[in-house]
């Protein structure tokens, strides 16, 4: 992955910056150029809340090569308190059997992956059980 590509996602991945449609209120994360609900092209910048709940989840036991040393790991769709949904790993889960849909989580800043041994470290959000 090239650094430019990583760099342009920083506001979203580090700070949960999103866009809110000025007409219908649709929240775009990441920000978009056009609203998929009402076709408006005007958004105002907002910052998402870092708390929410698990909508669904899985435990990845066979991962892509990049994540193969971290398996098994939990990943889920998280609905933040402002109703926006995103996909995030659920870090630090000891007993996967106890993971449940509906559990409260909080997003934290973690390292997500490395670009090989000598490339950049890549950071972003993960969820932890609240």
């Amino acid at each position: 992955m090239i650094t430019a590509r990583y760099h342009r996602e920083v506001p979203q991945r580090y700070r949960l910056e999103a866009g809110k449609c000025t007409k219908c209120g649709y929240v775009a994360f990441p920000p978009r150029l056009v609203c998929p609900k009402c076709s408006t092209k005007k958004f105002k910048p907002i910052v998402l809340k870092d708390e929410g709940k698990i909508i669904t989840y899985t435990v990845i036991r066979v991962g892509p090569d990049k994540f193969s040393k971290e398996t098994p790991y939990a990943i889920g769709i998280i609905e933040l308190n402002d109703k926006l949904r995103l996909t995030a790993q659920i870090a630090g889960v000891v007993d996967f059997e106890k993971l449940k849909i509906g559990q409260k989580v909080k997003l934290v800043f973690r390292k997500i992956q490395d670009d090989g041994k000598a490339g950049i470290h890549m950071y972003g959000y993960k969820a932890v059980l609240a």
Partner: peptide, 18 residues
Amino acid sequence: YEVYQGVTFPGLYAMIAH
């Protein structure tokens, strides 16, 4: 916003299944 986080295709459908 999905793959970057470490999701896989079995993972996506597994989330549908759960």
